[in-house]
């Protein structure tokens, strides 16, 4: 594994976790020369998943764990978020927003996971023992 991968624990509190996330993504993007769009989108999708974990899953366990991994393999960036909340597959259970609806009809929620799907080339959930793991891959434009 290359030495410049990111593999860190996040404090399971929103302000601390999102601040650490933003710094980690910025440093990773600088090291890997990722330009502007990829770091923005990477921060956005990870923000959604981490916010969901901290808001819904992790308050239900005694010793919450939250972990972030970032790595690059050729023209692909891979990001992983792990938590030890109750099993939850956001891709199965979140409603899909209808982006064609009019202003009055658009539901206010449900955008987070949709953004993850739209901004990644590949994303999937797995339950590994007591751990929820979401893996996302984004291809870099060459």
């Amino acid at each position: 594994m290359p030495h410049n991968d990111v593999d860190i624990s996040l404090h399971p509190e929103l302000t601390a976790a999102l601040t650490t996330l933003a710094e980690a993504v910025e440093q990773f993007a600088d090291r890997e020369s990722l330009g502007e769009s990829v770091p923005f989108n990477l921060n956005l999708v990870l923000d959604e998943l981490i916010t969901n974990s901290i808001s819904y899953g992790l308050p239900q366990v005694d010793e919450p764990l939250l972990r972030l991994r970032l790595s690059r393999n050729g023209d692909t960036v891979e990001a992983q978020v792990e938590d030890n909340g109750p099993a939850f597959d956001p891709f199965e259970e979140a409603p899909q927003p209808d982006t064609e609806q009019e202003l009055d009809d658009r539901p206010i929620g449900g955008l987070g996971v949709f953004l993850v799907k739209q901004f990644t080339d590949d994303s999937f959930y797995e339950r590994d023992g007591e751990i929820n793991r979401i893996t996302m891959r984004m291809k870099l434009e060459t």
Partner: peptide, 17 residues
């Protein structure tokens, strides 16, 4: 910005706002 414009397009916000 280009990034925020892209988010507006993907979410369809550019059509309703």
């Amino acid at each position: 910005s280009e990034q925020i414009k892209q988010v507006f397009e993907i979410t369809g916000f550019d059509k309703i706002l």
